[in-house]
Amino acid sequence: MESRQKNRYEIRLAGMGGQGLILAGIILAEAATIFDGKNAVQSQSYGPESRGGASRAEVIISPEDVEIDYPKVTTPDMLLVMSREAMERYGHELKPDGIIIIDSTYVHKPEKATGKIISIPVTELTKEKFGKTIVANIVALGIIVEITGIVSKDSLEKAVIKRVPRGTEELNKSALELGYFLAREKMNTIN
């Protein structure tokens, strides 16, 4: 049981349609499988529309490359919430030592949350830095990887470059850097 659990790191990315969370999930899974030599499964659930509505992506990573049987998240080790609805729905579903990253642009009072709470206004700071929110998902990925180290930064960057539109590589790399920076800054204040 113990060994199986250790080999199964469950990540849930929850928010609204249009925030690019499914793409973020795919990038994370590709960083793990294609570039890091780990095993991973990615899945998602859509809201009724492809934009707006609730959106949820899940990634299960097996760091030691064992087979992943059940492909869905049961209780996440890491939860990213980027909307109030997602906070209410998923905020309390977390492992006791789990990490929850909250985009405080949308969620101000994480009262229901359990686990280690890291609250950063991801979307707001993305807008501040780049003048647009489109790469907020990539910034969030940077934060997740800086904090959890679940994939290497090198693999993450390769996976991002593979998936983003041509011509936006530098923007997305900067977005990752912003994510790393925000996470480090936050961790320093916590510690």
Partner: peptide, 9 residues
């Protein structure tokens, strides 16, 4: 639907 939409290596 699960098999159709989920991603694996």
């Amino acid at each position: 639907e699960v098999i159709g939409h989920m991603r694996e290596r």
